[in-house]
Design a protein around this nucleic acid. Structure first.
Lengths: 236, 236
DNA sequence: CGCAATCTTTACAAAATCCTAACGGCAGGG
DNA sequence: CCCTGCCGTTAGGATTTTGTAAAGATTGCG
């Protein structure tokens, strides 16, 4: 991942240069356009990581661009920092409701500009916190979100069911005794009959439907998650 | 809070008086110095709310003062309005780059001067127009302004409610335990029963009305902010 | 000092989940 | 093929967890 690209659209060339100077100094890749129509095209073609937009421009204004980009799935997620000369509350609100992610009223100090740009990029990029995901074929277990999907369909599991499935699925092919499962999924202090696990396994299989077959019984030992030859573990 | 103090440093005494006259008329407390070295000392000693600086002065120039003040933590945050006779772009850029918050080219109208001074003070005095905004569908959370809107309608939240909502909403889809919420919203030193969070969640849901449904409870784990978008189908 | 707002705790009811027990089926060894 | 022990499943009561109201504690402010 290289430098984040920022596209600035403003009809004031002075301001364009000011912004460019300050952002480049902070190692951002900067594109500029004094023309809103052309700027919009650039945004659609280049997919910058962030767009800095003047609210008030002759012809196509910032709000129009905002709307355009938000309407297109391909560009809907590009964060927008709106610049505005008017401090009037109405304008801010409109800008926000139109989909801007932040705003800055002119005049602003370069320090503030850079700080905002950083903040927005941090939010929009690092926001997906490297999900803890275990994938076994059609089965996806997301620990952080606490979601399980089988064949794309979300499966509602209870806390205990979830923990047991997670424990089994992250050790495919390995036989795990009921006691091991109890320790891992319920905590070592838990005092429960080992047959309790059977009950949870049953309801897991039922909820997983076809996918339930992935949980195999190893008579006399415990259970194991089927290791279909080569399913690669994707976990981070 | 009394009148804001403005320190003006410029070697042209006429200009000094002009500025003083106009600012005092608008109820600012005005200090002046025709000597940049002495001016710097005054700035360091008195901590004015705003500094108006001439870029070009014999001896120690505006940029030098700028640098000095910015280098010292005690004075680094004093906003600076730079005056310059040169309209040349380079100077403006440099002036801003050195940390000035705004600039004005001579000659300027008194009205403009006062307007700029007001603007800068408004910004730096905590009533910042700029904001950190988290948007999740109809819900808009403005961190700096401490405002929440749902479907355009402002929602009055208490401090704790606000922090909890902000914490959840900025990590959509992710399950957060009550302990995590306590750490983030109340501080790691806070010693409260985790059920306290439930109470705040309840009142948050109530205040958010329809939007309250965005806060989901994940039984056995905690809460999460619903992440409508982004679910990738995984199958192959 | 008293008020008002907020935060925390407590208490209780409702809901969801968990556990045990029990019954019946089935695998595998002889 | 029969027997025995293990497993799957179901069901109901026990337990845990959550929602919510209300009271006590704390804080901020005039």
């Amino acid at each position: 991942m290289g430098k984040p690209t920022v596209l600035v659209i403003d009809d004031e060339k002075d301001l364009l240069e000011l912004v460019r100077y300050n952002l480049e100094k902070e190692h951002f890749e900067v594109l500029t356009s004094p023309d809103s129509t052309k700027g919009l095209e650039i945004a659609q073609r280049q997919h910058p990581d962030l767009l800095i937009l003047d609210l008030m421009m002759p012809g196509v204004g910032g709000l129009d661009i905002c709307r355009q980009l938000r309407g297109d799935n391909a560009t809907a997620k590009i964060p927008i920092l709106m610049l505005t000369a008017k401090a009037a509350e109405a304008d801010r609100v409109i800008g926000l409701e139109m989909g801007a992610d932040d705003y800055l009223t002119k005049p602003f100090s370069p320090r503030e500009l850079v700080a905002r740009v950083r903040a927005i990029l941090r939010r929009s990029s690092g926001e997906q916190p490297a999900a803890q995901v275990v994938r076994r074929g059609d089965l996806v277990i997301d620990t952080l979100r606490h979601e399980v999907k089988f064949a794309g369909k979300p499966i509602a599991l209870t806390a205990t069911e979830f923990r047991i499935l997670e424990f089994l699925a992250s050790r495919p092919g390995r036989v795990l005794s009921r006691d091991q499962i109890i320790d891992a999924a319920l905590g070592q202090t838990a005092a429960v009959i080992d047959r309790t696990i059977d009950v949870h396994i049953t309801s897991l299989r039922k909820k997983l439907g076809t996918g339930g077959a992935k949980i195999e019984t190893v008579r006399g030992f415990g259970y194991k998650f089927r290791d279909d030859a080569s399913e690669e573990a994707v976990s981070m």
